[in-house]
Design a binder for these strands. Structure first.
Lengths: 216, 216
DNA sequence: CAGCATCCGCTTTGATACTG
DNA sequence: CAGTATCAAAGCGGATGCTG
């Protein structure tokens, strides 16, 4: 990207991460952890493959991403965030927070990947009973599943499936988004077609007690 | 801007504010308050005038900026942020915070406007004696001056000059940036060429007690 | 002068095809 | 799997011109 040429912290930040697709690549790496090129592409529907390659190279040069060849069993290249790249988490969080109102409209013809909801999940869910044994919830849409877990009172989200989930929640992207941000209550969501199998109380234990304020 | 077409809060946010220059225009409006077209251009060195016009129109359509014709004494158009636009403050703050390490290098051939330091100032300065009478500090570089004021223990920054400042601090952009972020102590800065006229204790009262952590 | 609109060359992006 | 290569389309930068 062409530099703004301004001695200003915001402009300098945008010099590095202001390019199209760059922050979404960071989002992927934040949500997925170390990832293969193909998985990144899968999580970035719409990106041209040459652009992904370009951006990864730039991010590597800026010291935000590192590339390592995984050892034999996997034998592939893994891209991951450096500590400096990890520091972009709060930028992404603010972006997600600001962009939340746009999730109120039902998606029309938009791409969706379930693990994208990991960002709002970690932002808005809290363990309301941190001293009780940890719980695991699996979310499903039809897409690859994702898991929400508590540990030490902290709620973590990751792509993948759970071994022995306390609950399995299945629904449309819109319903799941509404649920995780507290904009829709569990009962309402179920009434509108959400399926919640297993321990509903485990789900309630982490759901927001009031809707994510649209805005602080 | 072309939409990413992803049902994800971050992507949707970037659909709106991800265009080149857009966030810097928001920065200007946050730091200056309601502004004339010409003042915005002055604060955005490097922008092409047609782009500024385009972006302002887009921002208006998205409901982040409003345009009003100021009454006779001024008789010009004023652009300001709507509440929804104001909500981007935290996004800019995180961007400034993340971009701060880039300010450590002395600027070379980069444009500078003193009021840009208003963002780090409000982020890192605090009134360490909120119960004592409020103070006013004027900053100067050669550029248009800016003012840092305390009121109710909150530190505010704005472009302009002060009526009866408790102190006037003059120095290079690099020195002032170092000072406001706590990366350089007042004494060191003075030793390196900063001029501090008036009540140095007033300045110390708001300066960070420890350097802005590069990163939390 | 403030607030744009137009034109034009250059750069970036997007879509698709192809390769070690 | 992890990319290059190619080429058209869109976006941007810079200059300049117009209008109230």
């Amino acid at each position: 990207m062409r530099s703004y040429g301004q001695y200003c912290a915001a402009a300098k930040a945008l010099d590095v991460i202001g390019d199209r697709w760059t922050l979404l690549i960071v989002r992927e790496l934040l949500l997925r952890g170390p990832s293969r090129y193909t998985d990144l592409r899968e999580g970035l529907p719409g990106i041209a493959t040459n652009l992904l390659a370009d951006r990864l190279r730039e991010l590597e040069q800026e010291g935000l991403v590192s590339r390592e060849d995984a050892p034999p069993p996997v034998a592939t290249t893994l891209f991951s965030l450096t500590p400096r790249g990890e520091e972009l988490r709060s930028v992404i969080e603010e972006l997600v927070h600001w962009g939340l109102p746009f999730m109120v409209d039902e998606p029309e013809g938009e791409a969706f990947r379930l693990h994208w909801l990991g960002a709002p999940a970690e932002l808005y869910l809290t363990d309301h009973a941190p001293k009780r044994p940890p719980i695991t919830i699996e979310l499903r849409t039809g897409d690859a599943p994702m898991v929400i877990e508590t540990s030490d009172g902290v709620v973590r989200a990751r792509p993948g499936e759970a071994e022995h989930p306390d609950a399995v929640v299945t629904g449309t992207p819109h319903l799941l988004a509404g649920l995780l941000t507290g904009m829709v209550e569990l009962d309402d969501a179920v009434a509108r077609g959400l399926r919640c199998e297993g321990d509903a109380e485990a789900v309630r234990r982490v759901l927001p007690r009031e809707p994510a304020r649209l805005h602080p």
